[in-house]
Amino acid sequence: MTMTTIKVRSDIRDRLARVATEDLGGVTLDTALEALLLEHHKAQILAAYDRLKNDPEAWAAYTAEQDEWDGTASDGLTGDAWKITQ
């Protein structure tokens, strides 16, 4: 993979290094940055679902479509029945 250089303030680099060391088990700064970007992306997705849930009509349409797709599995399971329990 091609590498590049980016300019960041030294305090930002130091904070990223702390996250990489203390929170992510000593990974490289590259890996830490990637993890933080993934976390940000997941937060955006969850926020979008929250916005959807706040619109009852849109949420009803979404769940109705999910129910239709669940029926395509033709496995006979409904709702949470497919989840593995211990």
Rank of each mutant, 00 (worst) to 15 (best):
L33S: 14
I6E: 14
K53H: 09
A64M: 03
A35P: 00
A73G: 05
A64C: 01
A20I: 15
L24Y: 15
L38S: 06
W82D: 07
K42H: 13
R13A: 12
T5P: 00
L37M: 11
K53N: 06
D75Y: 01
I6H: 12
H41S: 06
T4S: 10
Q66T: 09
L29Q: 15
Y49W: 11
D55M: 01
D14E: 12
W69Y: 15
A32S: 09
A48Y: 06
W69R: 15
A17L: 10
D23Y: 03
E39W: 11
L52F: 07
S74V: 12
A81V: 02
H40P: 00
W59A: 02
I84K: 14
T72I: 10
S74K: 13
A48W: 06
E57R: 08
L16E: 03
L46S: 10
G79R: 01
T31L: 12
Q66S: 02
I45W: 01
Y49N: 03
D14Q: 09
L46I: 15
G76Q: 03
R9M: 05
T78Q: 05
G26I: 15
T2D: 07
A73K: 13
H41T: 03
R18E: 13
Q44G: 01
K7Q: 15
D80Q: 05
D50C: 06
K42M: 10
T28K: 12
V8D: 00
L24D: 12
K42L: 11
Q86D: 10
R18N: 08
A17M: 08
V27E: 12
L36W: 08
D55G: 02
L16W: 04
L46M: 13
K42Y: 10
T28L: 06
A17V: 07
T63E: 15
L38Y: 13
D70R: 15
D55V: 03
A60V: 02
L33G: 11
A81M: 06
L46T: 14
A61V: 07
L29N: 14
L33K: 11
T72F: 10
L29C: 09
E39T: 04
I12D: 07
G26T: 14
L16M: 07
I45A: 05
A60T: 09
A17H: 13
T2V: 09
G25R: 05
A73W: 13
G79K: 02
T2Q: 09
L36V: 06
I84C: 07
A64H: 03
R15Q: 14
V8F: 05
M3H: 09
K7W: 14
T5V: 13
Q86A: 10
E68C: 04
Y62C: 06
K42V: 14
D11G: 02
L29P: 02
S74R: 14
G71D: 04
